[in-house]
Amino acid sequence: MTIDDQPLLSARGISKMYGQHVGCTDVSFDLFAGEVLAVVGESGSGKSTLLSVLSTRLEPTGGAVSYRMRDGTMRDVFALNEAERRLLMRTDWGFVHQDAREGLRMGISAGGNVGERLMAVGSRHYGEIRSTALDWLGRVEIDLTRVDDAPKTFSGGMRQRLQIARNLVTQPRLVFMDEPTGGLDVSVQARLLDLLRGLVADLGLAVIIVTHDLAVARLLSHRIMVMRAGRVIETGLTDQVLDDPREPYTQLLVSSVLQV
């Protein structure tokens, strides 16, 4: 068994309770390097709670999440000490928020936003940081003349693309995305999805993307997990699940999308 036969991330029996209320319960899956997993469901289905637990932003009530570190060892992410966990989050992981203001420093220039992770891991050469930032702005199709402008002057689509560049600059292997196209105009969404699809393929990124939009899941993901009331009710290859859903609830979701 080679190292790439082992999952990159492995979730077993994840549950998160808010008092008596179920956030999510008994979620298990493996995610492999370069694989894009979409977690879909309506609001309140537990998909955002699950994403928060997987990305260590929330402690689970039960279950375990392990991750294959860059040195090849599988580690329980909740057993990492805080320094290890924060290092993981700003190097080998990325997190793209729905609201770019949560993922960017709005008063810091685009170049500074992209360069922050590099400086956080010890880059101390201004020229190199800047040229890397410019390279990434180009890759996310942001006009290079905007490198010294703060994202508060950017459009919604540009902010999302900047957020993506800021995450990818350390070449993470896993990126969490929470409704990354939510709140954007349809044409802006299409461009962003196109860009994301290209980057994910080029970089061989593994992605866990939470979305209520099945069209987004169809375009980006290899596999899909359908959640309802905190549970995973159906899982499989994205095309199979969306073309031939077995669960009545999934059928409902798919048909309601078709009506839109």
């Binding site: 805080e82 320094a83 924060r86 420093r105 810091i108 220039s109 170049g111 500074g112 360069g115 922050e116 992770r117 400086m119 956080a120 891991v121 101390r124 201004y126 940081i129 800047r130 490198v147 010294d148």
Partner: peptide
């Protein structure tokens, strides 16, 4: 406080980066 505890000072260099950029 957390940044001091973990010696996470990259943000200070971001400030210096901004100075040079501007």
């Amino acid at each position: 406080r957390k940044m001091h505890a973990l010696a996470e000072y990259g943000l200070m260099h971001v400030k210096l980066y901004e100075d040079i950029a501007k």
